[in-house]
């Protein structure tokens, strides 16, 4: 489902302008990471995408739905937003019940809900804790439960707010697999994150924000090669890319494999 933001302006107060003319189109199945310093407008932008905030100027379309004409609960059929803090939403007695909450709100029947819950818990690697109380799980797993609650809603667009916070290496890897799997199934994945390595590894498109504007938009290789833009957004390129640049390697290596290939290419030259 296409997401289209056209010249979005938004201010919390006259002296607190958060978005200044954002125009962005995201195609179905894209993997988009939005990065930038704190206060750049990232959270405000994703809240525009599911209608939690309405544009004061401009238009946000999710498919053919204008967010101004739908409640957030209605928008939840198309856009699932995973909040940063799982404790802002968990309240059921079991993990399975918690994950079923969204599908039930959307009117899934019992069989559909059961299938969606099982699939979501398997996707986040927590099928064994379906009957546990959410608050008996460590916070990293509660965060995955919060993600499962959104995955079970089967929305065509999934947005994650800082998904890797509190996750260990295995958890981050699991999140990367989820991003890839959602995208393979044609679902759009958007994340805002300060975890630059996670963004570089798992997202095909990087959007850089600063002071309420988009200042760069492209593949990880293109975005992370623009040192001035990154400095403007107070973002540091992935360590491996910086090492590649320091060694004068061609291109912008973002993974160990591309780094080795670039190193070999450079050695071959010399």
């Amino acid at each position: 489902m296409q997401l289209s933001l056209q010249d979005i302006h938004f201010a919390y107060a006259p002296d607190a302008v958060a978005l200044r003319g954002i125009t962005l189109r995201i195609a179905p199945g894209e993997q988009v990471a939005i990065i930038g310093a704190n206060g750049a407008g990232k959270t405000t932008l994703i809240k525009q995408m599911n209608g939690l905030l309405k544009p004061q100027q401009g238009q946000v379309l999710v498919g053919d739905w204008d967010t101004r004409r739908y409640t957030v609960a209605q928008m939840a059929r198309r856009v699932g937003l995973v909040f940063q803090n799982p404790d802002d939403q968990l309240f059921k007695q079991t993990v399975a019940d918690e994950v079923a909450f969204g599908p039930r709100n959307l009117g899934f029947d019992a069989a559909h809900t059961a299938r969606a819950v099982t699939a979501a818990l398997e996707a986040v690697g927590l099928p064994d804790v379906a009957n546990a109380h959410p608050y008996d799980l460590p916070s990293s797993q509660r965060k995955l439960v919060a993600l499962a609650t959104i995955l079970a809603m089967e929305t065509p667009v999934v947005i994650m707010d800082e998904p890797t916070i509190g996750q260990d290496g295995r958890g981050v890897q699991r999140l990367g697999e989820i991003v890839a799997s959602l995208s393979e199934n044609g679902r759009t994945v958007i994340a805002i994150s300060h975890d630059i390595d996670f963004c570089a590894d798992h997202f095909t498109r990087i959007v850089v924000m600063a002071q309420g504007k988009i200042i760069a938009d492209g593949t990880a290789e293109i975005v992370f090669s623009q040192a001035e833009i990154l400095a403007q957004a107070s973002v540091t390129a992935p360590q491996i890319a910086r090492l590649g640049a320091a060694l004068g390697l061609p291109g912008v290596p973002l993974h160990v494999e591309s780094f080795i290939a670039a190193l070999r290419a450079k050695k071959g030259e010399t």
């Binding site: 599911n50 939690l52 957030v72 609960a73 909040f83 802002d88 939403q89 909450f101 709100n105 809603m153």
Partner: peptide, 14 residues
């Protein structure tokens, strides 16, 4: 924040 999170899961609060 909680209201926003639950609305995002399809809970109609209005």
């Amino acid at each position: 924040t909680i209201t926003a999170a639950q609305q995002s899961r399809g809970l109609e609060t209005q």
